[in-house]
């Protein structure tokens, strides 16, 4: 690990280094560059998904209805909590909504929780390993928190968006769903009024629908990115010995507060998903 320079030597570079992904295909050229894939995001999220899947399998195949062990109790608590939310918000939910909700909730919590790992630990290890193999540690990038990446949050939000469209078509039919774009939210009585309001209605409904995945994705991304950035700024305080206690205190406080953000953002994402799917399943007569 000797190739390391102290972070404080160049704060801007330090932060930029930490905000750069380990990518395959170079740096993204445009706003949407599908020739690039962020390996660190994929590795961390797949490992976390694997851990989740492993425990799900382990718990699911050892269910003891009469004498639940501690792991099963904990899992039952989460399942019951999510199921309760689904029952409350979306009583006519089909069998897909619950699993989608619990997967979002648990997986987002796990990905967000990567924020609590000390900001330099894993990038440092990666840089060390990279250096051992003869690489330049300055070019060993690794962003640990998958949810500080727009791809992850929009991947989830777009999956939810696909489900919203699916539930819309399922409940209203393709024609009924498209018709809804022209006759809501402004309702006119006469034919002339209907024609006049069709374009504003279309614009309003399009914005309303597109705002759903965008707000879902940006809310999670914004919260986690800001949290990550704050951890990095606190880490910068290690520039001298007398600032160390301040770093420890601030870092601890922010980490404790961030536990709340981690779970809250996962919960909000899950809850809004259920709400959106519930809205999508309503027929126009319900309004």
């Amino acid at each position: 690990m000797s190739g390391f320079e102290p972070a404080i030597s160049n704060p801007v570079e330090y932060i930029q280094h930490h905000l750069t992904n380990l990518s395959l295909g170079g740096k993204p050229e445009s706003i949407a560059d599908f020739s690039v894939i962020h390996l660190d995001v994929m590795i961390v999220s797949i490992v976390l998904a694997g851990i989740f899947a492993y425990f799900a399998k382990k718990i699911g195949s050892n269910i003891d209805p009469d004498n639940p062990g501690p792991i099963q109790n904990a899992a039952e608590m989460v399942v019951e909590f999510v199921d309760q939310q689904v029952q409350d918000i979306f009583p006519s939910a089909d069998k897909m909504v619950g699993p989608v909700a619990i997967t979002l909730f648990v997986w987002i919590i796990m990905m967000n929780a990567m924020d609590l790992i000390p900001v330099d630990l894993i990038p440092g290890l990666v840089a060390g390993v990279y250096g051992l193999f003869g690489g330049d540690p300055h070019h060993a990038y690794f962003k640990v928190v998958p949810t500080t990446n727009l791809d992850t949050t929009f991947g989830l939000a777009l999956s939810v968006f696909v489900l919203i469209i699916y539930y819309n078509i399922k409940s209203k039919g393709l024609g009924g769903w498209l018709k809804g774009f022209f006759f809501h939210p402004f309702v006119a009585q006469g034919t002339g009024g209907k024609i006049a309001l069709a374009v504003p209605n279309l614009l309003m409904t399009l914005i309303e629908e597109i705002a759903k995945p965008v707000s879902l994705g940006l809310r999670l991304f914004g919260n986690m990115f800001a949290g990550e950035l704050l951890f990095l700024l606190i880490a910068l305080m290690a520039f001298s010995v007398w600032a160390m206690p301040g770093q420890v205190i601030l870092g601890s406080m922010w980490a404790i507060f961030h536990i709340l953000v981690i779970t809250l953002q996962a919960f909000v994402f899950m809850l809004l998903t259920i709400v959106y799917l519930s809205l999508a399943s309503q027929t126009h007569d319900d309004h």
Partner: peptide
């Protein structure tokens, strides 16, 4: 930027939902 990671994450999410539904949720 949006990259191919987006598609990867959507696939991982789909597989995870399917798996969790089968082995634990139900």
């Amino acid at each position: 930027n949006i990259t191919a990671t987006l598609i990867g994450q959507m696939l991982v999410f789909m597989v995870l939902v399917w798996f969790v539904k089968g082995v634990m949720w139900e």
